[in-house]
């Protein structure tokens, strides 16, 4: 945690941490405190006075069907993004770990989507699936499938999941590949000598040794799906049609900025904060678990 040799200076360390702490206090702590305060207050319609109402805002949002709908949309969305994202990138990483020729070329071709902004990723996939000009919707029409994500909620949800998975796949791929390459080759060789085939070796040796990486990625992907996909939703569907893609983060934004429901939006923010706290704690427990091998 700290060096044996330390410098002694009375004011210098404070000066060094000052900028970071100032920004943290002004733009992180204070707004978070404001959100918590706001979540237990109710403002009159003119914003002149406010009164303390305990947990009424929370009771209100949790009995609001649109909020509960947003919760279940978020859960479906995150489960799909995390599941498909991890599954596909694990498959690609295992394959990339196997090949010798062209391994770096494949890697280059698979990691660049990380650099594409979620909103831009949404625009790309939205264009491919655009009901009038999209290439894929054209093929879907040819085979007789009625595709219009602007009207059909399930199709819209599918589209944003696809864009989110595409955007996140390179991140997962890099970590899985690093995890695979850190597994000692001697273990694999020993199993091969004992007569285990590639499938058996994967499930009995590689997969368990990869589980800390997998757990870590699981948490990171849930965080990604919950919070960092705002751009995709905002650029592609705007939460619609009929709130079919309105994830929690989008609802906080919508209720706060469009509907100007301060108390409700603040209560939603607090719920989201609790979710991030749980996820962050889970993520840091991973560091302790990783020491195993």
């Amino acid at each position: 945690m700290q060096k044996r040799v330390v410098f002694n200076n009375f004011w210098l360390p404070y000066l060094l941490v000052a900028p970071q702490i100032a920004i943290t206090l002004i733009f992180f702590m204070w707004p978070a405190y404001q959100a918590m305060l706001q979540s237990v207050l109710q403002e009159d319609p003119f914003g002149l006075s406010s009164k303390f109402i305990w947990f009424e805002n929370f009771e209100r949002i949790f009995s609001d069907p649109t909020y509960l709908n947003s919760f279940s949309v978020t859960v479906i969305f995150s489960v799909c993004v995390t599941g498909f994202g991890l599954g596909l990138s694990l498959l690609l990483a295992v394959m990339a770990d196997r090949v010798i020729k062209g391994a770096t070329t494949y890697k280059t071709f698979l990691i660049w989507p990380y650099a594409v902004a979620p909103a831009v990723a949404g625009v790309l996939w939205g264009f491919l699936f655009n009901p009038t000009v999209g290439l894929i919707s054209y093929f879907l029409r040819v085979i007789g499938y009625e595709w219009n994500y602007i009207l059909n909620g399930n199709q819209a949800l599918f589209l944003v999941i696809l864009a989110a998975v595409w955007n996140q796949i390179s991140y997962n791929f890099i970590f899985f590949l690093a995890g695979l390459q850190s597994i000692p080759k001697s273990l694999i060789e020993a199993a091969a000598i004992d007569g285990a085939g590639p499938g058996r070796r994967f499930w009995s040796i590689v997969f368990p040794l990869l589980s800390p990486t997998g757990f870590f990625l699981l948490v990171v992907n849930i965080v990604y799906a919950f919070f960092h996909t705002f751009g995709i939703i905002h650029a592609v569907t705007g939460g619609g049609p009929a709130k079919a893609t309105e994830i929690l983060v989008f609802k906080v934004y919508n209720d706060g900025f469009r509907a100007q429901d301060l108390g409700g939006s603040a209560a939603q923010s607090v719920v989201l904060m609790l979710i991030v706290v749980v996820l962050t704690v889970a993520q840091f427990r991973y560091i302790e678990r990783r020491v195993h091998y």
């Binding site: 702590m29 204070w30 705002f230 934004y253």
Partner: peptide, 9 residues
């Protein structure tokens, strides 16, 4: 405390 959870304040 990502931006997304404290947008309004």
């Amino acid at each position: 405390l990502p931006v997304e959870v404290r947008i309004l304040p």
